[in-house]
């Protein structure tokens, strides 16, 4: 039993390290800011998630695991907020994403200017 937990937490930690590295590698490799955000979100979700699950298995059932899960919840609630704010700030600043295909007018929905977060006047 002890051995199984040890092996599982090794696996989770290695997977977490792998995805963390992949996300950081993508951050360097991607060509422009919007695609870089996708790479960073691999680190923010999979990397952090697997590392925290691995540490939870090591810590056992208790306050330490609970704090780790709080940390995970914090990441899962704040990471999309930051990504969204960053994307909107980029669009507001006039940085256009390089697109292979723009389907905004093709889905039957009205193409509208994205709301940039300001109060309607």
């Amino acid at each position: 039993m002890r051995l199984a937990v040890e092996i599982a937490s090794w696996g989770f930690m290695l997977l977490g390290s792998f995805f963390t590295l992949v996300g950081a590698f993508g951050l360097v490799r991607m060509p422009e800011v919007f695609t870089r955000m996708h790479a960073a979100s691999v680190t923010d979700t999979l990397g952090v998630g697997f590392l925290i699950f691995g540490m939870c298995l090591q810590a056992g059932f208790g306050l330490v695991s609970l704090k780790l899960l709080f940390l995970l919840a914090l990441f899962f609630f704040t990471a999309p907020v930051v990504t969204h704010a960053l994307a909107q700030a980029c669009l507001h600043e006039g940085i256009k994403p390089q697109l292979a295909e723009d389907r905004r007018g093709m889905t039957g929905a009205r193409p509208t200017d994205p709301d940039d977060g300001r109060q309607p006047s």
């Binding site: 950081a24 590392l51 980029c90």
Partner: peptide, 21 residues
């Protein structure tokens, strides 16, 4: 651009938290 730097700064923050843990 400055937004690349902000994104990288946010990633550094995330990684620093994981490093702390």
């Amino acid at each position: 651009t400055v937004f690349d730097r902000v994104l990288a700064g946010n990633s550094v923050g995330t990684l620093a938290i994981m490093l702390l843990a």
